[in-house]
Write a protein that binds this DNA or RNA. Structure first.
Length: 543
RNA sequence: GGGCCGGUAGCUCAACUGGCAGAGCAGCGGACUCUUAAUCCGCGGGUUGAGGGUUCGAGUCCCCCCCGGCCCCCCA
């Protein structure tokens, strides 16, 4: 299990009494699932260290003193006027008290709570304003040339003028557009340039001000390095966009070691989290916000989805198809491993089970995960479509004992998930729909005979699902029809497909007159059309 | 141009520091006269993308190449 491997390596290569884990995000719009992967990853490391009896702090910073460099699609166009200003100084897109950055930050906090992460939150705007960055800003100004040189050297970028300090313009409030042109040890001289960046227009103001206590911010690579130093960060992973060779992490790493005199935190480069193959991007608005993932998947599954694959492996989550039932099955297997319900026959199998067990451990969203019955998701989805079937009764029967409160709530959760899945993501063949007119299907003479006799049975009286089920079995034996042929005849006549939910219950749940009419019609229907014209396309016959 | 990750059964993927290539699903066959999308049993002839190399032994390590996804060289 990769978390254990990392934790072991951290303990071995960076033996320390206390660890400080850090993660951060610029809250420039709805925060996407990729960032949630980072939170979960760091939270797992925290958990692993705690289990190894190493206390650690988990910090999460919102870089809300970063300039707004684009407008999220959801925000009104008039927000363009704020481009270049710190996110903490831009009004909230929803109105109200908080800032733009605060709004999206708080939204993200809600999401990670769902997946069981509870980092300590800090906001860089507050750190700047309260002077926490002052010392590093002074260093950055004093050694600006060295920092620029490091940037050039490590990144190989020709761009000369990436000064490590960006003053906040006293005239227009922008921070993304300013350039330092002088530093006397107390104040910085700066220009707010209209053409410094393409995404914002500086006001042209030229001025002199104190860079401290919020008067400036560090350019982001220098800021990253400074934060490591100020917060004493010892472990920090980052997405691959930062972790590429010569990328921002390499630059920040050289800066923190050569200028700020602090070792680079233990790095963990992790891969993207894609949804339906598309990259998550905060600013372009493409991709799935983290909040949406939690709406698609229950919390434990959302976390499991991020914990199960190796952190260097891309996650490509596509909620359609069999993805969710499969994920549920794997989750259940991990749970079974965790609760000691599985036994390996070979050493390799035992290892794998232990692995699954660890995965479940790290996937828990709260401390205690009750042991309870876990009815297979696909089965829940199937039975749920039978109006007369009570899932709780079925589960109790299966268990052979009354359900506990945990059993019931787990089942309830699965029913909700199944309803959502069937409504939005399930492939057609998982759904069934009674056809309102006789499907054009091919039935053998024996099958028609069977359906005709079944009509006579139905005509006798009102049957319960179970009784009807028994009658169906009696009838198919009496006629000498194979079970498969008998049942598929029913399904074909009603659903237009050759399989379906438990036939007795299905018929009992339908209007009796309708059932009678359909059975009679099917029993006399001639052979029509190609067999596969009605195959696998439920609903195609509905008018 | 540089970097990361993938390529293993029809599909989705496993295989700890090299040590007999495995699961799930799908498929096929069979059983089951309370549940035929249930349950149970059985069934896998894979050049592990190609080619070299190291090794007693390579899916695993090294080199090179091909294919796919992505990242960096704008911003943060």
């Amino acid at each position: 299990m990769w978390v254990d491997v990392i934790v072991e390596d951290v303990l071995k290569t960076r033996p320390q009494d206390r660890y400080v884990i850090n993660d951060a995000k610029s809250p420039s719009g709805p925060i996407h699932v990729g960032s949630l992967r980072g939170v979960v990853l760091h939270d797992c490391i925290l958990r692993g260290l705690a289990a190894a009896d190493r206390p650690a702090r988990f910090l999460f910073g919102f870089d809300d003193y970063d300039p707004m460099d684009s407008r999220p699609v959801a925000a009104p166009a008039e927000f363009d006027q704020y481009l270049g200003m710190p996110l903490s100084e831009v009004p909230s897109p929803a109105g109200g008290r908080g800032s733009f950055g605060r709004y999206y930050g708080l939204e993200f906090i809600e999401v990670w709570k769902h997946v069981g992460a509870h980092p300590e939150v800090y906001w860089t705007s507050e750190m700047y304003k309260s002077g926490k960055f002052n010392e590093t800003i002074r260093t950055a100004l004093d050694r600006a040339e060295d920092l620029i040189q490091i940037d050039r050297e490590i990144s190989g970028s020709q761009k000369a003028d990436r000064h490590p300090v960006q003053p906040v313009c006293e005239h227009c409030g922008r921070v993304g557009t300013t350039v330092v042109v002088g530093w006397d040890g107390h104040q910085v001289e700066y220009e707010c340039r209209p053409d410094k960046v393409t995404w914002a227009k500086g006001c042209g103001h030229r001025g002199k001000r104190s860079p401290f206590d919020g008067g400036s911010k560090l350019q982001y690579k220098a800021e990253w390095a400074a934060k490591w130093r100020i917060l004493g960060v010892t472990i920090e992973g980052a997405g691959k966009d930062h972790m590429t060779k010569g990328g921002s992490h390499d630059v920040a790493s050289a800066m923190v070691e050569r200028i700020f005199n602090h070792p680079t935190p233990y790095p963990i480069p992790y891969e993207w989290f894609l949804v339906g193959g598309r990259k998550m991007s905060t600013s372009t608005g493409i991709g799935v916000p983290a909040a949406e993932l939690v709406a698609i998947l229950r919390e434990e599954l959302a976390r499991f989805l991020m914990v199960r694959p190796h952190y260097r492996q891309q996650i490509n989550f596509d909620p359609t198809g069999e993805t969710i039932p499969n994920l549920y099955d794997e989750y259940d297997r991990a749970a079974a491993a965790f609760f000691g319900e599985l036994e390996g026959k070979t050493p390799a199998e035992t290892d794998l089970i232990r692995d699954h067990s660890r995965t479940f451990y790290y996937s828990r969203t709260n401390g205690e995960q009750p042991r309870c019955i876990r009815m297979r998701f696909a089965k829940v989805a199937n039975l749920m479509q039978m109006p007369t079937v009570n899932l709780f009764d079925v589960a109790a029967k299966e268990k052979g004992a009354p359900l506990t409160a945990q059993d019931r709530s787990e089942l309830q959760q699965r029913m909700e998930d199944a309803r959502r899945w069937l409504g939005s993501y399930a492939p057609d063949h998982y759904r069934f729909q009674v056809q309102s007119s006789m499907p054009r299907v091919e039935l053998s003479p024996m099958q028609r005979e069977f359906l005709g006799q079944l009509a006579a049975v139905v005509a006798q009286q009102e049957w319960s699902g179970e009784e009807l089920h028994n009658r169906i079995h009696d009838l198919k034996s009496q006629i000498g029809l194979k079970p498969k042929d008998a049942f598929s005849a029913i399904y074909l006549a009603f659903l237009g497909k050759d399989s379906g939910p438990q036939a007795g219950w299905l018929l009992a749940s339908l209007d009796r007159a309708f059932v009678l009419a359909r059975l009679r019609q099917a029993s006399t229907a001639g052979v029509r059309g190609p067999f596969d014209s009605a195959q696998g396309r439920p609903g195609s016959e509905v008018r």
